[in-house]
Design a protein around this nucleic acid. Structure first.
Lengths: 346, 346
DNA sequence: GTTTAGCACTCTCGTGTCGAGAGTGCTAAA
DNA sequence: TTTAGCACTCTCGACACGAGAGTGCTAAAC
């Protein structure tokens, strides 16, 4: 593969830029007009031929304009796009919104999904922060009725889970409080293995409670264990490539079905570093349902403690620069918030 | 408006039944063939003319078959459809799934959305149960770091909410536990007004906590306060009437945007009785974005205590019988679960 | 060697025409 | 009141055709 000249790289970038806006094949004359180039259309055409031979452009039919291939987008993302950042005032506004949401993780997630969808004009998804090593923090036992007890468990990272427990025989609120106090004292800061090592230190009541705590702890380790927040699904329906709804349907199903999502995320972001933003173009040959789509995926959280995934789905013809910087910014912001919250708790 | 003969009512029902399956205008001969009628096509045609004049049928163009109008669907739903129930084994399966989900309200909601979408082949939504009179149940105060305190509040109905509180000066865990104990003792079972009436019984620390409790209580009174669970959005994209995605986009936006949803729900189900299932056909002239859609909406919960809404969105050409019975069944099931949980707690 | 002007060629897309087919409305008879 | 028969209407797909946009190629200019 011959290396591209500087002008060819420029032309590729301009074609992608134009095509992202218009969704129409780009011709040589249109390019000159649009960007006031001082080369002639014939020259551009010669370069276009080479870019086509290199596999970065394609003609939908003979004697039409060119449009980028998936390879073309990949080259663009890797080599031409450069690092951009969201405008300062946008970043300030978003940051402000997050800090206004207080400590409510649910609201963070909703807000993150909303911001991603809005900024990128695509469909967004955010998974709840998942503890990588769920450490126990606090337990409350609340007597409700007869032998029914409501357990409220708090974990490092801010997760709060509840569970009902039915005892063999009625127990007073004082006994429950004592048991909870004992468990809190002994188990604070421990992970599953740590709690498992303490067997035998507990009485019958406490054993029952501990069993449920460990079950809950295991459940929290699943990849997409908690809620999945989505937003902007209707954005992608506005794109012309999804005008016939069959392709839109296929793409949105990936976001909708937990099993597909789990597969996708566990094979991409969840095995990558925290600050990498991954760009999947055209399904990368692996995901048939994402043929006409691209995804920009990121990861957030505190490495080794709690992490979650987030991302944007859009047409292959996507404004990658803006989307990547949005995903990077939001993931950084969520990481900061989560780490801050974690720090406060210890 | 002349009243319809029995045969005309039958023909209307059969046309709707056929049209729901085929999405094609129904002709007189096709009807005879399909249902082995022993009247001639000319007779059917005469009746069709009357049904058309009555406003229940429409011809998309001269000399095509007939398709139901919105009025036709309304007549069908009100007068012809009758009460159907889901098959026994389907009901058993669903019930079983719910009881397997334990006491996890989140999972109930997800499951309800999934069942609704699956059974009706439409898009479903379920709102979290909203306390109509949020009564306080229990509070835990957990010291985290320095002046930071994690509040975990439990409400009748099973809602658990968390909130961070920053104190003026550091306070020990013992003091926090004492304060929590005092508040629990005094406030248990009270609603907003009840707690407001207790002003002056608290010290400074407790005042701060009470303030946050009341704020949280107010927040829970909003119509669509909690999470909204959706499923099957891609189902409606499979329907031919949503082939051009513009109409699909409009319809799904109603489900996606909280403000629209809030408007819709607060004007329909949330003002109706618990066992009513409401059928909105073609937006009922009020919701422009729902022009080609119908919604089947229901309400669940314990009247006066906690209630939520649920529903299905589909094309106007929808299997109303099946959808209505699904919504009714799931809403009944959720009501039972919520009421059962409430009973256990008191 | 690289760039440019000129020109013939190709392909899409919108429009118009046409015939087949499905289904109707109407009339007259049963 | 129902039915048979028949002329009529309208959609839909196929086909043709011209306009327009854009290309590839060649030869001249830089």
């Amino acid at each position: 593969m011959t290396t591209l000249t500087e002008r060819q790289r420029l032309i590729l970038a301009l074609i992608i830029h134009t095509y992202v806006e218009t969704a129409q094949p780009v011709g040589s004359k249109a390019l000159i007009e649009r960007y006031k180039l001082d080369t002639s259309s014939a020259t551009i055409r010669n370069d276009m031929v080479e870019l086509t031979e290199a596999g970065y452009l394609r003609q939908p039919y003979t004697s039409a304009g060119r449009e980028p291939t998936e390879e073309g987008y990949r080259y663009f993302v890797r080599q031409l796009m450069g690092q951009t950042e969201l405008p300062m005032n946008t970043r300030r506004t978003i940051t402000h919104q997050f800090y206004q949401a207080g400590r409510d993780v649910n609201r963070w997630m909703r807000l993150a999904a909303s911001v991603l969808a809005h900024q990128s004009q695509g469909a967004s998804l955010v998974t709840s922060p998942r503890p990588e090593s769920a450490r126990f923090k606090h337990l409350s036992l609340i007597s409700t009725h007869g032998r029914q007890v409501l357990m409220v468990m708090v974990w490092t990272g801010g997760q709060v889970r509840q569970q009902m427990l039915t005892l063999a025989e009625p127990v007073s609120q004082e006994q429950l409080s004592t048991a909870a106090g004992h468990i809190n004292l002994v188990c604070e800061g421990l992970d599953t293995d740590g709690i498992a090592a303490l067997r035998g230190q507990f009485d019958a009541l406490e054993q029952d409670v501990i069993k449920l705590i460990r079950e809950e702890q295991d459940r929290m380790k699943q990849v997409v264990s908690g809620e999945v927040y989505r937003d902007g699904l209707t954005n992608v329906l506005a794109e012309p490539e999804f005008a016939e709804s069959e392709s839109a349907r296929k793409a949105l199903r990936v976001l909708e079905e937990r099993s597909m999502l789990e597969d996708l995320l566990s094979r991409t972001v969840l095995t990558s570093g925290m600050d990498d933003v991954q760009v999947l173009i055209g399904g990368e040959g692996t995901w048939e349902d994402l043929r006409d789509c691209s995804m920009v995926l990121g990861r957030y959280g505190a490495p080794g403690l709690v992490t979650g995934a987030l991302g944007v789905l859009g047409p292959t013809r996507m404004a990658y620069g803006r989307t990547v910087s949005t995903v990077r910014f939001v993931s950084g912001l969520l990481s900061d918030l989560v780490i801050e919250m974690l720090a406060e708790e210890n």
